[in-house]
Amino acid sequence: MIEVLLICILALCLYTVESKDLLFGTIALSAISLLSALLFYLLKAPDVAITEAAVGAGVSTVVYVWAIKATERKDIS
């Protein structure tokens, strides 16, 4: 179970780095946080799991999405 979660997290990390659309990357980051929270819970660290879920999947996603919305959605180069 833990190995499966870690592989999923790794795959999502690669997708986040490589994805062309920033919004897709942000959603993948949020999914990484959710999986990490599950992982922390399985490893018997519920305190860390709550923090990871609230900060990673909640607040930081909101901040990223707002930052993306405030910029142009256009590739310059």
């Binding site: 305190d47 799991a49 923090t51 909640g58 607040v59």
Partner: peptide, 25 residues
């Protein structure tokens, strides 16, 4: 709840604080 019952159940000031922040958002 997470903030005030941090001494009994998983959680505490930081954890409850970020959940409160989500609620504020």
């Amino acid at each position: 709840y997470v903030m005030l019952f941090g001494h009994v159940s998983p959680g505490g000031g930081f954890q409850g604080g970020v959940v409160v922040a989500s609620g504020i958002v």
